[in-house]
């Protein structure tokens, strides 16, 4: 019920927002295909995620045919987590990526009989899950309890903004953001923050819905995104607009090589990206030195 209300709020606010943008051109940013004033984007995005939080994972499964699980697995294997790691997962409220990292590290510790005994490493693994949206964090916390990780000191839930992180400089070994950076108002600021909090040798990894360039597949994908996804969104989550926003925001996100350029401009080295399913999603990575 709560999310229905917020959708209604969103619907009623959008036209007003739109008329305002016609007058104010200077600081407009994108909200889906619509241009909205910068100060409104995070609120509008917040509304979207508050409204979809409860059905978020179900919708991910439906929309990607379960593939999002594989993509996240891939992200984590690219990250190559290690015991004792300090990791920050931004926009990961539901804990999907964080749980995977933790599982991965636990399986390493179990497997690797030979762990460095001389290491003063009993420094504990710590995964910070940072999300701007408390509703998403609540979903994650609930799932942590279901997984028996309720008391785990390895998971730290933090409400925070990707553009102004509350973590110290050079405090993290890894930074991941999965399906999140698209929703950030200033991508550059988020990247600069990622760079700031990472240690030397730390890695930035971003999983994001991206751009398809393969001719026939592109048409199919467009049809699927613009016709099927909003319909499914309405059917399952009772919220067409939020999913309309979702597919539009994907198209507004910079293409792979441009986003890679932004990452390099933030100071990262060895910037690479990997397309999956022809570019439906891409994993970008960078190394801080």
């Amino acid at each position: 019920m709560a999310f229905m209300t917020s959708v209604r709020n969103l619907r009623s606010k959008l036209p007003a927002v739109l008329t305002r943008t016609c007058l104010v051109h200077s600081h407009a940013t994108s909200f889906g295909f619509k241009d909205v004033p910068e100060e409104d984007k995070s609120r509008l995005v917040g509304n979207v995620f508050s409204s979809v939080a409860s059905s978020y994972d179900l919708m991910n499964d439906l929309m990607s045919g379960g593939l999002h699980r594989l993509w996240k697995d891939r992200l984590v294997s690219e990250l190559h987590p290690f015991p004792g790691m300090k990791h920050l997962d931004v926009a990961g409220g539901t804990g999907d990526v964080a749980f995977r990292i933790l599982d991965n590290i636990n399986s390493i510790s179990r497997r690797a009989v030979k762990y460095d005994p001389a290491d003063n490493l009993n420094d504990e693994t710590q995964i910070y899950v940072c999300d701007i949206n408390p509703n998403m964090l609540n979903v994650g916390k609930k799932r942590a309890i279901e997984r028996g990780l309720g008391e785990s000191h390895s998971l730290v839930w933090v409400e925070g903004d990707a553009e102004a992180l509350s973590f110290d400089n050079s405090s993290m070994d890894g930074y991941t953001i999965a399906f999140g950076i698209r929703n950030v108002t200033h991508i550059e600021k988020a990247l600069a923050e990622a760079y700031r909090v990472l240690k030397r040798g730390g890695r930035f990894l971003c999983l994001e819905l991206s751009h398809v360039d393969i001719p026939v597949f592109k048409e199919l994908y467009d049809y699927y995104s613009f016709s099927v996804i909003p319909a499914v969104g309405e059917l399952v989550a009772g919220d067409r607009d939020s999913y309309q926003y979702l597919v539009e925001s994907i198209r507004r996100f910079p293409p792979q090589h441009k986003f890679a350029a932004l990452i390099a401009d933030a100071g990262f080295q060895k910037v690479q990206y990997e397309n999956m399913v022809g570019g439906v999603v891409a994993i970008h990575s960078g190394l801080k030195l």
Binding site: R74, I214, F217, H257, Q272, Y273, N275, V277, G279, A282
Partner: peptide, 19 residues
């Protein structure tokens, strides 16, 4: 394209297509 020559893409053989 040449403009993006600074970056490389990786592609997993399992579920990806390179352009």
């Amino acid at each position: 394209p040449p403009i993006s020559s600074r970056f490389s893409t990786d592609s997993s053989p399992h579920f990806s297509h390179q352009n």
